[in-house]
């Protein structure tokens, strides 16, 4: 088996998920300079809601598997959008002009609340995600790619293209960018900035919902703590690409997925099996540290002084 190609495939799959989640971090940061550390929990809620809906439909109906997953995703989206909206309204809006530490602590608090709520609703045990999609395996050049991997990568690409369209080609998108560059002036132009900020949270949450379904389907498991590490890694991806920058989040997510997969694939060989692929999680944070030391503005981050 070709390790390199295989890890590239795995890395792109993982990276797609990171990219979609990282977009949520970066959009919110771009508009109100807040790191929404509860964003990972929104992904988890998405996975949980989808788990419930997919499980019920699989047990009680004879709908085709793909349709079931689609309905599960469509159910997860409004749930996550509601959570994203609630976070903005209840946790962050009042702190809009507070010192930056306050909303940061609130974000961590909100994240704990969401986790505990999920634990109360869905139990503390890992939940086996119903494996209803036939996981066909394709062989290419000594490596394998599964149907689920293809679906994840394709879905992510579609989502990223869709988001880019919204941000660069629609009225909402122009208003979002204007508000992120100068909220006061955007208000003068007639933009209800609070509404735009809420819309940003909701858009990010909708992406998180889909990411939740993708992760659940990929690993076949959902757990109330699954959002924390995933969220932190996606945050690293957003910083790697340059936080606040959409293309940066996409690039950062993909790169981080590749670094992780290749790192996990080769770390055993490189260290004489002292470290194994279970050290996979270390790479995201190594990347974060490296970025913060070498290029704090990220790969595509704006240079300071570009503001007029």
């Amino acid at each position: 088996m070709d390790t390199f190609l295989q890890q590239i495939i795995n890395g792109l799959t993982l990276g797609s998920v990171y990219a979609v989640v990282a977009l949520g971090y970066t959009m919110v940061y771009g508009i109100i300079q807040l790191i929404n550390f509860a964003h990972g929990e929104v992904v988890m809620i998405g996975a949980m809601v989808a788990f419930t809906v997919i499980g019920w439909l699989a047990a009680n109906t004879t709908l085709p598997p793909l349709l079931i997953v689609l309905i599960g995703t469509l159910a997860a989206i409004p749930a996550c959008v509601a959570v994203g909206y609630a976070l903005e309204i209840f946790a962050y809006r009042r702190l809009r002009n507070a010192p930056r530490l306050a909303p940061l602590i609130t974000a961590i608090g909100a994240s704990i609340v969401l986790q505990q709520l999920a634990m109360m609703i869905w139990s503390r045990n890992p939940l086996g995600f119903p494996q209803i999609i036939p996981n066909t395996v394709y062989h290419i050049e000594g490596a394998t790619i599964t149907l689920i991997q293809i679906a994840i990568i394709a879905t992510s690409v579609l989502l990223m293209a869709g988001l880019t369209f919204v941000v660069y080609r629609t009225r909402l998108g122009v208003a979002m960018r204007a508000a992120s560059q100068n909220a006061q002036i955007a208000g003068l132009m007639g933009v209800n900035v609070n509404q735009i900020i809420a819309a940003t949270f909701m858009l990010g949450a909708a992406l998180a919902a889909v990411a939740g379904v993708m992760v659940g389907t990929y690993y076949g498991i959902a757990h109330y703590t699954m959002g924390s590490l995933l969220g932190l890694k996606a945050f690293c991806a957003a910083v790697l690409g340059g936080i606040g920058n959409l293309a940066g989040a996409m690039l950062g997510g993909m790169l981080l997925g590749l670094v992780e997969a290749l790192g996990a694939g080769y770390i055993g060989d490189l260290t004489n099996n002292v470290f194994g692929s279970n050290y996979q999680d270390v790479f995201a944070f190594l990347v974060l540290i490296a970025v913060l030391v070498l290029r704090p503005s990220g790969l595509l981050g704006e240079r300071i002084g570009e503001r007029a």
Binding site: R171, V174, A175, R177, A178, Q181, N182, Q184, I185, A186, L188, M189, G190, V191, E306, R307, A308
Partner: peptide
């Protein structure tokens, strides 16, 4: 506004379109 308040990373055309946002 004082200091002009142009959106620095929107194009000229997008800036004008923002003027017609309402």
């Amino acid at each position: 506004p004082e200091g002009r308040g142009i959106f620095p990373r929107l194009t000229v055309e997008e800036n004008l379109d923002m003027g017609a946002y309402s």
